[in-house]
Design a protein around this nucleic acid. Structure first.
Lengths: 230, 230
DNA sequence: GCTTGTTTTAAACAATCGTTTAAATTGAAG
DNA sequence: CTTCAATTTAAACGATTGTTTAAAACAAGC
């Protein structure tokens, strides 16, 4: 990977950080940005080619070098744009006023919704999953921005549910149990497709049913974890 | 991808399926096979290069074409060898005589051991994880051979634990809850590494502790699932 | 030692990759 | 219109990919 910090076009952002209406440049630049996301998600960073991206965007191959320095620079901007869009679409729900049981249910539902999204933005989740298995230099910031807040909300909620004082690591394990169950319905989707016949998946593998199930599992665990076992 | 069914060396296997002691050929062939696994696991199928594989094996670059037809042919043989070795190392444990609680604990322990293995065979798990996200044509047979037996054992064990008659899909969801929790400690390992400080991981993230925790979660869930909720 | 068939080797092949270059195009200012 | 900087373009670059080729090395039978 090269430096990705080479020369950029002269009028890219104004001091306020906003995009200048430099129409011609802005157009091809945003077209590349829009086309790159799905390609990176489908092929992975290494597998995606700038030719395919530029072809999908309908721009010249050299444009990515001119506007983003190099391939890695483009990838960074894609991740940046993804974070902005994602923060807008999935706002961290304010759950301080609810009962912890309802908060847990809401968090599980949000997690599953992010995992099983099939809309036009499915490539975002796909890209995040690829980052988990093949981390690029941007992975750590992704964890801090996306995973840490939800993880903290989860641990705080679970802390309320187990009533008694449990060691920190036990509550964290409970949080990972919750996340793991949600994540599996995407990570293991290909396996589930083989293991479970289609008519059964159609009936019982929607977000609502899965959220109900996972929440029930974790609430049961929290009740029993109030008195330290063994 | 090419045909991968081109001409092979003349004396590869005898009718019994065993390897003929054609020493020279057998040596370079098996050396390639041994070197290819870790490389495919580390770089992925597309990312791995035959030059790196042959370099690690200490053989000529053309050998892979001579012995396996092409890169895909080599990959198929790697998966085949993996399945044989894996079936030998992790025999499906006979658990009919134990109490279901102990069976569940054993299954969770086996799952975690397969996930968190750090020995010389860690590349096998890595390769299977890659197949889950980027399935190649061999994926379905992998599910049938590796996942289905364990999944069946899990559902049967959980069926005994929930005592009352629950619909099939509920027991299957419980099985996926179990698998998901185990799987997360590998899929999310990179995220956990960022979220949890090292000294805490060293103390509480060993196989034994995690197996204990996940088993406790699932046993709690099974107890509460005996009486249909709501 | 010669022959024959198998295996290994060095070298080259065509294709594709990310990136660069230098010229052409554009749009606004003087 | 001319000037000039910003942007786009076609073409090429060097590097790396999987695969092929033709000759060399090898082992066994006679």
């Amino acid at each position: 990977m090269a430096n990705s910090a080479s020369k950029s076009p002269q009028s890219q952002r104004n001091p306020e950080g906003d995009i200048r209406p430099n129409e011609r440049s802005h157009d091809t630049r945003s077209r590349i940005l829009a086309a790159a996301g799905p390609v990176f998600a489908a092929q992975g960073y290494a597998g995606a080619t700038v030719r395919e991206i530029c072809s999908a965007a309908g721009v010249n191959i050299a444009s990515v070098g001119y506007h983003f320095g190099d391939k890695l620079g483009l990838y960074r901007e894609v991740i940046h744009a993804l974070r902005v869009a994602r923060a807008k679409r999935f706002p961290t729900p304010n759950t301080d006023l609810q009962k912890p049981q309802e908060t847990l249910q809401a968090l599980v539902h949000t997690l599953l919704a992010r995992m099983l999204i099939t809309e036009e933005a499915a490539w975002e989740t796909e890209l995040l999953m690829r980052e988990m298995q093949n981390p690029t230099p941007v992975f750590e910031s992704i964890v801090e921005e996306f995973f840490r807040p939800l993880f903290n909300q989860l641990t705080e909620t679970l802390q309320l549910l187990v009533k008694s004082e449990l060691p920190t690591h036990t509550v964290q394990h409970l949080a990972f149990s919750t996340v793991g169950q949600c994540l599996y319905y995407r990570v293991g989707a290909q396996a589930i497709q083989v293991l479970i016949p289609e008519w059964q998946r159609d009936a019982h593998y929607d977000i609502e049913s899965l959220a109900q199930h996972i929440t029930a599992v974790m609430l049961s665990a929290c009740e029993n974890f109030t008195t330290p076992r063994r």
